[in-house]
Nucleic acid binder design. Structure first.
Length: 229
DNA sequence: GCGACAG
DNA sequence: ATCTTGTCGC
């Protein structure tokens, strides 16, 4: 079973959550990878509108071939609501349950959301990275904070996202003439590597394979088309 | 005070 | 995120 560090309790109020982020942000390290990447994981959650039951899942892929190595899913319940800026408090608890079921430990984890491209520089990918203590980054479908110039229309083109004068991530084109995805470092990884990994996870869709596969997994789980494995 | 606001 | 068919554009 894959392990992680429970740095704090998740049963907090929104105000306490913000205080925790202010405390945890100082532990985030943006640095080059220390080991080559062989496997990369994608994670996501799904749920029925107005219901507290959440379906969380993680899919591990071999980076070189993008073939699925392992999958883990769980049916849990979310207590924290969705509040912009506090997404990690709603999603990470159940994702950790799925993580604990993995027998392989992914080298890097891609999250469906922001890394440091967050008002307090600690989005779900950064927060998750601290718990998992391994390289993580965020690849979001929309912006939380920051501004950027539209990148060129070709796949691979990107432009920096700026917030209060600092570069917090990049608007990256993963496919020709489609809206960009927003990539930012989570923890223990640098900006350029996060972009490179995102492009290497190309399956022909705008959404990179790790996240796309995880999305498919949790939706199948929610529809009862698959078992929590 | 007003508007924005990951999933 | 989720609810949902057809439809505009390359």
């Amino acid at each position: 079973m894959a392990s992680y560090q429970l740095l704090h309790d998740w049963t907090v109020t929104p105000t306490e959550a913000v205080a925790l982020q202010q405390q945890l942000r100082h532990q985030i390290r943006i640095e080059p990878l220390t080991k080559p990447v062989e496997t990369i994981a994608g994670c996501d959650i799904s749920f029925n509108k107005f219901e507290e039951t959440v379906y969380a899942g993680i899919v591990v892929l071999e980076l070189a071939t993008l073939q699925v190595i392992e999958e883990a899913g769980v049916i849990s319940s979310a207590t924290f609501p969705y509040i912009p800026g506090l997404l990690s408090f709603r999603e990470i608890p159940s994702l950790l349950e799925a993580w604990a079921k993995l027998r392989t430990e992914p080298d890097v984890v891609m999250f469906d959301g922001q890394g440091i491209a967050h008002p307090r520089r600690i989005g779900i990918a950064s927060h998750g990275g601290l718990f998992l203590d391994r390289p993580t980054f965020g690849c979001a479908k929309s912006v939380l904070v920051g501004k950027y110039d539209e990148p060129a229309p070709e796949r691979g083109a990107w432009s920096p996202m700026k917030h209060y004068g600092e570069t917090i991530g990049a608007a990256l084109r993963t496919k020709n003439k489609v809206n960009p995805v927003y990539v930012s470092s989570g923890h223990r990884i640098d900006f350029q590597t996060a972009i490179d990994l995102t492009l290497r996870c190309d399956g022909g869709y705008r959404i990179p394979e790790p996240t796309r596969r995880a999305h498919n997994l949790v939706n199948a789980l929610r529809r009862g088309e698959r078992a929590p494995s």
